[in-house]
Design a binder for these strands. Structure first.
Lengths: 199, 199
DNA sequence: CTCATCTCGGAACGACCGTTCCAAGATAGC
DNA sequence: GCTATCTTGGAACGGTCGTTCCGAGATGAG
């Protein structure tokens, strides 16, 4: 067998994810990738293909490693409304503090870029949205089974609403929106779904 | 007096707005602007300055000509909840059909771009958000005065929530979100603010 | 050790980026 | 008509873009 790769493609891709996540596709040059990952153009192109392929792989990885785990956690949570409360609390904390503060959501960010004209990217955005909505819906069904949902509530519409709210949080967090204000909005949405006032 | 401009800067800027609105700042080259406006680089730079100045001017114009009129209409509407219903209906129609379909909101789009690192742009984003939120709040106060708002409703939190919802609509509309689905989400939000079921 | 085969380093490519510059053209006052 | 002053057309700038290519280096099989 010939020579073997001198780097870990998985580690490199994670670095690329952070680059595209923070700066977007158009603002990130191949030179940035080369500098950040430490590997050179040859290895980059041989391993991942061109820039568009690289962005696609990065977005896929983001969804798998960041979005879907959160969705699964939400859908599997048996508590109902508290699961939704925790989901949004974790979202807001991740968006406003720590390493990824003010980076927003890479998928939400992708909505506005030129990258979204790529059919494969567009498909990823739609899948992501569907999965988010479905997780919301599952949590709401659980909540209803626990008698935590007010009467005459359309769970489907409520799931769509909460999904859109998440996009709003993601977007505004990039402009440095206050975590407290975001939390207050989320609380208002969730308490309007539940009976009436907070316990 | 010397020579006078052979074009209308206002018309040209409107063309530039549509360019930046649809494609974003980084994906739009000066050559695109030259081609779309029909005027040449010299006139462009002499009139508007560099690309960043041009984008700033375009975003300012967008807010003045598109956002603020809608905000003022909403805040001045004396009907309360129906004003909010109409606001969102008009928003969704503008985002999903007609000339600007799938363009989203230029201000929302600006949240994800590299352009938002510019302090002046950042300030514009915050102003825009504040104005949107305030218009929502004014409409909600009017609604409460008309007895259209359920008890124990935090109007401030509700205004924040509706503003975030608008950003969600703007973002998802760029990916081709279904107008019907968006409307359903908005209806759910508004009817949860009002008494309970729809009339 | 030798060789075939893949990886790595880095130069180089043409295209496009935003911006500048200057000569030619147009205009209003004299 | 002449001139001063601004606009206009378009070439040209250095820099960066994504991508390609090739020689050198590394590795495992025989």
């Amino acid at each position: 067998m010939p020579d073997i790769k001198h780097f870990d493609p998985d580690t490199a891709l994670e670095t690329v994810v952070r680059l595209f996540w923070r700066q977007g596709a158009t603002s990130t040059g191949i030179q940035d990738v080369v500098t950040a990952t430490g590997l050179n153009r040859s290895s980059l192109y041989a391993t991942f293909g061109g820039k568009q392929d690289l962005y696609r792989a990065a977005l896929r990885r983001y969804v798998e490693r960041h979005s879907q785990p959160a969705f699964r956690r939400l859908a599997a949570d048996e508590r109902g409304l508290p699961a939704l409360t925790d989901f949004f609390a974790a979202l807001i904390e991740a968006r406003c503090t720590g390493e990824y503060a003010r980076w927003g959501c890479m998928v939400a960010n992708a909505h506005t870029g030129a990258e979204s004209s790529d059919p494969e990217i567009r498909s990823l955005l739609d899948q992501h949205h569907q999965q988010l909505r479905d997780a919301m819906h599952t949590a709401l069904v659980t909540a209803e089974a626990h008698g935590q949902v007010g009467p005459d509530t359309d769970l489907g519409a409520a799931a769509d609403l909460l999904a859109l709210l998440a996009y709003g949080v993601n977007l505004r967090s990039r402009a440095g929106a206050d975590a407290r204000t975001l939390s207050r909005s989320v609380t208002a949405a969730l308490s309007s779904i539940g009976g009436r006032a907070a316990p």
